[in-house]
Amino acid sequence: MTQQSGHAAQDAAPPGRAGRRPGATQTRDEIVTSARRLFAGKGYDATTIRAIAADAGVNPSLVYHFFRSKEGVFTATMELPVNPAELLPALVGNGPREQLGERLVRVLLRCSSTCATGGRPRC
């Protein structure tokens, strides 16, 4: 086998599927846009990571790289300052049920004040 034929196999890979895109990357935003469109059109249950990736023109592993899960993509499309899945266990498990409303208000106020100052929410 010659060196030239080895390169031909690499060149045969489908374009846009392997490696980094040239130029400035807006991939994360493109994934969010695709996900938002699919979630709105098909609903959460019918939308898959593969469908989101295909619509955005990326490999599904890149979606997992940016968002870790379908839930993470969904949270990003909603532009929530925190992931509800991370917030709820702390609320429910940290005190009596009767004080849940008070804990929720405190957490939301803490989150909104952090967001208002341009910081990352620390809820």
Rank of each mutant, 00 (worst) to 15 (best):
Val63Trp: 01
Gly72Gln: 02
Ala90Val: 01
Ala46Cys: 06
Glu79Ala: 05
Thr48Lys: 04
Val73Cys: 11
Arg68Trp: 12
Thr48Ala: 07
Ala90Ser: 08
Ala53Asn: 02
Glu71Ser: 11
Thr48Ser: 11
Pro81Arg: 01
Lys70Arg: 12
Arg50Thr: 15
Gly93Gln: 10
Arg68Cys: 06
Ala76Asn: 12
Val82Gly: 09
Ala51Glu: 11
Tyr64Asn: 15
Arg68Pro: 10
Glu71Pro: 01
Ile49Phe: 08
Pro89Ala: 14
Leu62Phe: 05
Leu80Ile: 07
Thr75Trp: 02
Thr75Arg: 01
Tyr64Val: 15
Leu87Phe: 10
His65Val: 00
Asn94Gly: 11
Arg68His: 14
Glu86Leu: 10
Val73Asp: 07
Lys70Tyr: 09
Val58His: 04
Pro81Gly: 00
Ala53Arg: 01
His65Tyr: 09
Ala56Phe: 04
Arg50Lys: 14
Ala53Ile: 06
Arg50Ser: 15
Val58Ile: 10
Phe74Pro: 00
Val73Thr: 11
Asn83Ala: 13
His65Ala: 08
Thr47Phe: 14
Asn83Cys: 12
Phe67Gln: 12
Arg50Cys: 06
Tyr64Ser: 15
Ala53Pro: 02
Asn83Arg: 08
Thr75His: 04
Thr48Gln: 04
Ile52Asn: 10
Val58Pro: 06
Ala53Trp: 00
Ile49Cys: 13
Val82Asp: 13
Tyr64Lys: 14
Gly93Ser: 03
Ile49Leu: 14
Tyr64Leu: 15
Asp55Tyr: 00
Pro84Ala: 08
Phe66Thr: 13
Arg68Ile: 15
Asn59Leu: 06
Asp55Ala: 08
Met78Phe: 00
Ala51Gly: 13
Arg50Pro: 14
Leu88His: 00
Phe74Arg: 03
